[in-house]
Simulated assay, not measured.
Amino acid sequence: MTALKIQVNLTDSKKEKPLSDHLEFGRVFTDHMFSADYIEGQGWTNHRIEPYAPLQLDPASIIFHYGQTVFEGLKAYSSKDGTIKLFRPEQNMKRLNQSSERLCMPLVNEELALEGLKRLLEIDQEWIPTAEGTSLYIRPFIIATEAYLGVSPSKKYKFMIILSPVGSYYKEGIHPVKILVENEYVRAVAGGTGMAKTAGNYASGLKAQQVAAEKGYAQVLWLDGIERKYIEEVGAMNIFFKINGEVITPALNGSILEGITRKSVIQLLQHWNIPVTERKISMEEIRTAQKNGLLDESFGTGTAAVISPIGEFNWKDEKLVVNNGEMGGLSERLYNTLTGIQTGKIEDPFGWVIEVEKPINQL
C-alpha cells in the first residue's frame, strides 16, 4: 500500500477539554479534523489534518439540495496500557463505500482512509476519555460540494473525519428503555436507501421520534413499509429478541442497515453456542411470545449505545413488558463482553481490535 501523504497543520489554540462526568453525546469536538477533496477526473487529493473549524461551502452545493451525503460512526478507546484501540474500523470503511455506491458517490481507498483516521487519533489522543463508559466517537462523512442545481451526481466532494468525546448515548445508561412501536411513519423500504448510512434516512425518522419522546418513550420501533407488520430496526439500531432460548434478529432485506455491532453480536452468540437466527419476525409474534411468557429479553445494538436493553414495547396502546422491565442476563453478558474487548479489558479471540501505537512525536 502506498503511504498516504497528509499535510498536518496543528492548532495554536487548543480547546478546554470537558470533564468526563459532563460528557454529552456529540456536543463537543476535538482540536483537529481530517479532510480530503475529490474532483472528477483527479480522484481524492489534498489530504490534510487541520484545526477544527466551520466549512465554507457555496449555497448551491449539491449536499444542500439533493442530499448526497454518507457517514459512519465508530469509537476509539483508551486502554489501561495507554494504547488507543479501534473496534473493527475496516468494517466501517467498507460500509462507507457501500453507502457511497448507493448514493452515486466516489469510493475512498479503505486502507488509506483508515490510515488518515489513525493519524488524526495520534494528534488528538489526549481527547480520548478514560472514565468507565466513555470513549471518543468518530464520525467519517462525505458530502457533495459542487455548486450546481441540476439533479445529477456531484463532480466534487469532501471527505472528512471529526472526533467527539462521549459518555453514555442514553440518559438511562445501560438500564432498559421503553420503545414505542411506529404504525404510521415508515423509515425505509427495500430498493430505497435504508441499507445505506445516509442523512435522509435519519431526517425521515425525526417526526416519529418526536412523537415517541412526547409520550415518554426513548425510541421508536420501525415496521416494514409494505405490510406494516414485520420488525426492522429500533431507532437507529438493529434489534434482537430472545424467545424461548433462541435469539432472533430481522434478516437483512435491503431496507435494514447492516450494523457492525449486529454482526459482532451474531458472531459472539455463535461462539457461545447460543441459537441465533436471522429471519422475518412480526410484531404479532412478539406479542404472542410475551403473552405466553416466552419473550425472555430484547435489546438494540449499535455503535453509540453498544447494547441497549428494552424493558417495554407499546404497540397500538398495549404495553408489552419484557423481563419485568429489567436488564436480561444475555444483554448484560453481551454488553460486558463487547465493551471489554473494545477497551482491552478482556481477550479478543476474533481479532476485532486494532491498536494505534505510533506516538504523537513521530508525526
Score class of each variant (00 low, 15 high):
residue 104 C to A: 15
residue 154 S to W: 14
residue 152 S to L: 09
residue 363 L to C: 11
residue 283 M to K: 00
residue 140 P to N: 04
residue 96 L to D: 10
residue 66 Y to E: 13
residue 309 P to S: 04
residue 71 F to H: 10
residue 20 S to T: 11
residue 92 N to S: 10
residue 170 Y to K: 02
residue 313 F to C: 09
residue 70 V to P: 05
residue 284 E to M: 08
residue 200 G to L: 09
residue 304 A to D: 04
residue 167 G to I: 00
residue 9 N to D: 12
residue 305 A to T: 00
residue 171 K to D: 12
residue 128 I to F: 06
residue 350 F to M: 08
residue 248 I to C: 08
residue 237 M to G: 01
residue 234 V to P: 03
residue 307 I to Y: 03
residue 126 E to A: 01
residue 351 G to V: 06
residue 294 L to A: 07
residue 139 R to W: 05
residue 154 S to N: 13
residue 356 V to T: 10
residue 47 H to R: 06
residue 14 K to Q: 13
residue 319 K to W: 02
residue 351 G to S: 06
residue 275 P to Q: 02
residue 55 L to I: 08
residue 196 A to S: 15
residue 103 L to T: 01
residue 128 I to N: 01
residue 342 Q to G: 08
residue 1 M to W: 15
residue 260 I to W: 08
residue 185 Y to T: 03
residue 100 S to N: 14
residue 162 I to T: 08
residue 115 E to M: 15
residue 191 G to L: 12
residue 349 P to D: 11
residue 337 T to P: 03
residue 96 L to R: 12
residue 120 L to D: 02
residue 177 V to D: 07
residue 298 S to C: 05
residue 249 T to Q: 03
residue 111 E to Q: 09
residue 181 V to I: 08
residue 114 L to E: 15
residue 252 L to Y: 09
residue 320 L to M: 04
residue 14 K to A: 14
residue 11 T to Q: 02
residue 131 A to G: 07
residue 318 E to V: 05
residue 311 G to F: 10
residue 180 L to P: 06
residue 344 G to S: 03
residue 31 D to R: 03
residue 269 L to W: 04
residue 6 I to C: 01
residue 302 G to A: 05
residue 118 K to L: 07
residue 115 E to R: 15
residue 263 K to W: 14
residue 185 Y to S: 07
residue 119 R to N: 13
residue 32 H to D: 06
residue 125 Q to K: 12
residue 191 G to P: 09
residue 168 S to C: 14
residue 174 I to D: 13
residue 95 R to W: 13
residue 183 N to Y: 10
residue 338 L to Q: 05
residue 35 S to D: 13
residue 140 P to W: 04
residue 133 G to Q: 06
residue 306 V to M: 01
residue 152 S to W: 07
residue 358 K to Y: 11
residue 181 V to E: 05
residue 9 N to S: 15
residue 282 S to N: 03
residue 321 V to D: 04
residue 132 E to Q: 11
residue 273 N to P: 02
residue 319 K to E: 12
residue 40 E to W: 09
residue 221 L to H: 02
residue 258 E to N: 13
residue 42 Q to G: 11
residue 193 T to H: 04
residue 245 G to N: 06
residue 320 L to P: 02
residue 233 E to S: 00
residue 155 K to S: 02
residue 172 E to P: 02
residue 205 G to F: 08
residue 357 E to V: 13
residue 32 H to C: 09
residue 133 G to V: 09
residue 136 L to W: 14
residue 76 A to F: 14
residue 340 G to H: 00
residue 48 R to S: 07
residue 263 K to I: 10
residue 241 F to Q: 01
residue 45 T to S: 06
residue 267 Q to A: 10
residue 296 D to M: 08
residue 358 K to V: 15
residue 323 N to H: 09
residue 45 T to R: 12
residue 266 I to F: 06
